[in-house]
Design a protein around this nucleic acid. Sequence first.
DNA 1: TCGTGGCAATTGATCTGATTTTTGTGCTCG
DNA 2: CGAGCACAAAAATCAGATCAATTGCCACGA
Lengths: 235, 235
Amino acid sequence: MAGSALHDDVLDALGRRIVGGELAPGTVLTLDSVDVEYAVSRSVSREAVRVLSSMGLVASRRRVGVTVLPRSSWQVFDPRVIRWRLDSGDRLAQLQSLGELRRGLEPVAAGLAAERATPEQCGALSQAAGEMVVHGRSGDLEAFLAADVAFHRILLEATGNEMLTAMGDVVAEVLRGRTHHDLMPAHPKAEAVDLHERVARAVRSGDAAAARAAMQAIIDEAADAVAEAEQEGPA
Amino acid sequence: MAGSALHDDVLDALGRRIVGGELAPGTVLTLDSVDVEYAVSRSVSREAVRVLSSMGLVASRRRVGVTVLPRSSWQVFDPRVIRWRLDSGDRLAQLQSLGELRRGLEPVAAGLAAERATPEQCGALSQAAGEMVVHGRSGDLEAFLAADVAFHRILLEATGNEMLTAMGDVVAEVLRGRTHHDLMPAHPKAEAVDLHERVARAVRSGDAAAARAAMQAIIDEAADAVAEAEQEGPA
DNA sequence: TCGTGGCAATTGATCTGATTTTTGTGCTCG
DNA sequence: CGAGCACAAAAATCAGATCAATTGCCACGA
């Protein structure tokens, strides 16, 4: 990975330090200090800082340096910011935020998908739901996760709405974060898996209201599950 | 604005050309050609391309050049991408996408706001709604727009959810795009303004269900209005 | 003919050093 | 005490060179 990613390495490192709170808002760096610290040339640190600034994590001013910005100006929809936050101490707050987002978006998406999904998409959706059943029973969490991600991606894509489709990355991060940080039960609950199948059926039969309702139930269940896991052992 | 924004100028110009379709997906640029075309040095074109690439608009590969990527890989939540699309031929598709997004998010946000808004936020919300009434009557579209934007921003902020708060930028772009591209009636409809006041009241009294419902109605009304304006004269 | 391997050109990636521009800071002068 | 001016720090830009990866082509052999 480190093969030819000098720039991305610095970007990632700085991003994590900011999101993780090590570099608090108001902290001022100079480009030179970045050069020295990461032992790279100015081109590299410059571009890393430029991207960071395009994500709203820092702002650079002449004669001052590169200032770390407060969370309120971050581009919290940037997938990298989301991932950094999920990997940092911010994890639970981030999952909660994302959960509330999903509560709004996914039911709408399910409804739209019911109206617009192509036959192929319906098939893919059923297949993904089926795989969730299989891997849920066998307890293969990674495979289950993959099927879960696929399910939600296909559903969002079937809305025909490119912004909802783009939310697929966000949802994937959520699901990934949940399993990889021990916020999932060892065996996915059967009811949750059932609900996915119910969504798939509703979409196939074009029943927008039913799809919406079932998806709503999925989100509620997920929120409960995270809340429970949080009670026990918040990683 | 162009004072000291060499880098941003190039970024903006290239971004618009890509989003506007002049540079179709698959088109290949070389850094040198960018240098020449915009008469800037490599540092500048390089950083512009780097940011473009971080937004998913282009990918650069050695020995090949900078390739324009298909829409499916764009970071459609980036405010700049949204603005570029609203300013381009993509406008109606973009507004439709955003409308469907809002349909999911804002009702949820209204519900959360009803549960969590501080007294100050309730006051600000009522005030914004009041200003919408005033400027709606006087026909001052710019002032009406400002109040409208403020209203939705405050509401989203009152959710206490930073991602919903961040959607404020997106919603602001939508509202701005609507007025500035003649998709709004000369006089905002009284019912629409009423609904805003109803949301404000529901939030103040902590009635999440009512807030949700009223907000839902706002979104539906807005969708209808855009659809109508689209019939007549799509700018 | 087809596939395979190596050579070379192309192009981004990185480094370096110089120059320009902006803007805090502090000092001087009224 | 206040306004303006000179200085210096740091980002922004420019220019040129070198490194490294990858692709396309061509020769060679099966």
